[in-house]
Simulated scan of single mutants.
Amino acid sequence: MSDSNTTYFTNPSTFILLGIPGLEAAHIWISIPFCAMYAIAILGNCIILFIVKTEPSLHGPMYYFLCMLAVTDLVMSTSTVPKMLSIFWSNSREISFSACLTQMYFIHCFSGMESGILVAMAFDRYVAICNPLRYSTTLTNSAVAKIGLAVVLRSGILAFPYPFLVRQWPYCRTNIIPHFYCGHMAVVKLACADISINSYYGLFDLFSVIGMDVVFIAVSYTLILRAIFRLPTKDARLKTFGTCISHLCAISALYIPDFFSSLISRFGHSVPLHFLFLITSVYQLVPPVLHPIIYGVRTKQIRGRLLHFFTHKGA
Rank of each mutant, 00 (worst) to 15 (best):
E55D: 12
F50A: 07
S115E: 12
D73P: 03
K83A: 09
F267I: 03
E114D: 05
F241A: 12
N11Q: 10
L49V: 10
P170W: 02
H269Y: 14
L285V: 12
S4M: 06
S281Q: 06
M212H: 11
K53T: 09
S136L: 06
H184S: 04
R298P: 00
V209N: 15
H312K: 11
S136E: 14
F229N: 11
N5R: 05
Y38F: 14
C46A: 09
L231V: 03
I279H: 00
T243R: 08
M62I: 05
V144M: 06
P33R: 01
R305N: 13
I224C: 01
L223E: 11
F216K: 02
S246F: 08
L206N: 05
T233H: 09
T80V: 15
F275V: 11
V152S: 07
F267W: 12
L17D: 01
P33A: 03
Q301E: 14
I264V: 15
D213Q: 10
W169F: 15
V214I: 10
H27R: 04
S142Y: 09
P61M: 06
K234P: 02
T222N: 07
H269L: 14
L273Y: 08
A39F: 12
F106C: 08
G268P: 04
F164N: 01
A236H: 14
Y171E: 02
L263W: 04
I197T: 09
I117F: 14
M62F: 13
G202N: 08
F275A: 07
S220T: 07
I177A: 03
S142W: 08
I16F: 15
M113Q: 14
I195V: 15
I245L: 13
I32T: 06
R93V: 09
I195C: 10
P232T: 06
I48P: 00
L278A: 11
G183Q: 08
Y63S: 01
L285F: 04
C130N: 10
P178N: 12
F207L: 15
I245V: 15
L285A: 13
C67Y: 07
V52D: 00
V214W: 00
I32F: 15
C46W: 07
C182P: 10
L66Q: 01
F229H: 05
T140H: 07
M37W: 01
F34Q: 04
F9S: 05
K300P: 02
D73A: 13
S208T: 15
Y181H: 11
N175M: 12
W29S: 04
S261L: 03
G116F: 10
I195M: 06
K146C: 12
F88D: 00
M37H: 03
